[in-house]
Write a protein that binds this DNA or RNA. Sequence first.
DNA 1: ATTGGCACAATGGTCCAACCAATTTAGGTG
DNA 2: CACCTAAATTGGTTGGACCATTGTGCCAAT
Lengths: 250, 250
Amino acid sequence: MPPVVSPILAPVHTSSRDDAVLNALADFVTGAGLKPGDRLPTERVLAEHFKVSRTTVREALTRWQELGLVERRQGSGTYLKAAVTRNMLHLPLTLPSGNDFNSLMHTLEIRRGLEAEAAVLCAERASDADIAFIEQKLIRMEEVFHERSGMSADEDWDFHLAVFRTSGNPLFEQIIAAMYEMFHRFWEHPLGVRDFGHASFPYHRTLFNAIAERDPLGARAEALKLIATVEDDLKRGNANLKKQTKKSKE
Amino acid sequence: MPPVVSPILAPVHTSSRDDAVLNALADFVTGAGLKPGDRLPTERVLAEHFKVSRTTVREALTRWQELGLVERRQGSGTYLKAAVTRNMLHLPLTLPSGNDFNSLMHTLEIRRGLEAEAAVLCAERASDADIAFIEQKLIRMEEVFHERSGMSADEDWDFHLAVFRTSGNPLFEQIIAAMYEMFHRFWEHPLGVRDFGHASFPYHRTLFNAIAERDPLGARAEALKLIATVEDDLKRGNANLKKQTKKSKE
DNA sequence: ATTGGCACAATGGTCCAACCAATTTAGGTG
DNA sequence: CACCTAAATTGGTTGGACCATTGTGCCAAT
């Protein structure tokens, strides 16, 4: 089985100033024990400390920003967004994204495979503390649901995120988040589907129960039911859309 | 469920300068019909044309470079490395310290979820022509296997690729290929495992048979068995590695 | 005419110094 | 104490300059 892109040239190419800066910065981050959310030194400080120009520091930080490792806020500072080590492996992946029904369905197919697997691993590996944390997110989501009589995007995502992270595999979060963004980029206002996501509500608790009982197969089943409701919503939205365009033609 | 990264603001308030530059540049690339390998205008020309400073252009190009869309050669120019369209999703995958056993295992967990799902969809959707094509790849792989008494990377990948493509979802191919690349970047010479991949051989045919019979569940089962053999190989390699380091300590 | 080397131009990489824009902070005012 | 305002802080942008590498084309020697 072959490497898709030549993997052998990359390491040779490792010269250039910003690479050195990035390595030094990675060492600093690990050395200072900085964690996600913490603030990095200012660009001016880094520039002076590394004996390079601020431009070079900025170029290096831009690269980290593009990889999602860091977030910059004008007037505030640069903040760590993910754990950073010197020997990280980066693989940028560009995906074609369409706004047609099929493309949206494709993102759900990926999520179906990954969310089910993540649920399995989560149920297998969750500690008591993990389960308590997930339950906390679940309860919060349920509260907001009853307040507004509808799904809340943020709280719902927090719950799923807790599940993904408990799986112990950071790739789940990264890939599913991308699928998620792809989906919502063209589905911000679900056409004709007022209660989008509503049907998925009960399966959050059943999923949690399966995880809490360390039942991988059960967790898998509930995760699949959950994603199936989203697929249904999408299909309904697509049907509505067709109906509307048909009407407008008449 | 919420956008992880705000998907709604990005297109609207194009505030950051370099985003605007990248969009304009993407339009230019598609407009001019540039293909991978072609040279882009120089930074100075772009800066003047877009009415921004060269620094801003450089920052934008740095981002594309980090995503692998572009390659810069000092003294020569900036060259397109991949097809670029305006609305594509960039997914930078990051593994913390990608050369340890756990990280390699993470890539296999993703593959487990996706390859199983792809096998299901493939079995559901394969036309007769698709199945004939897959069988052709299978036979070719088996031939090479018997010639060399071992798995051949290229032919094996061709077979899997045929399966992924038949699933009708291009995301499978790209994401799994990325997992592949990540895996092999640090596993080019499987430590102490001479017959790496050997055990997976028989499951290629059983997988094909299930697909040919339009048996989604069967295809899923065989795909899982196949990936399980790879996981075994990895575990064996890890065990060997531990043994060696233990010996070297003595 | 071919080949080799050399100077020059083009291009990305780095640096500097200043200013702009958003944010935070500190102080003052009610 | 709460609120507002002004100053300091910080990332974002600009222009110009120079360095390092590469590509090009001319010219001389063979």
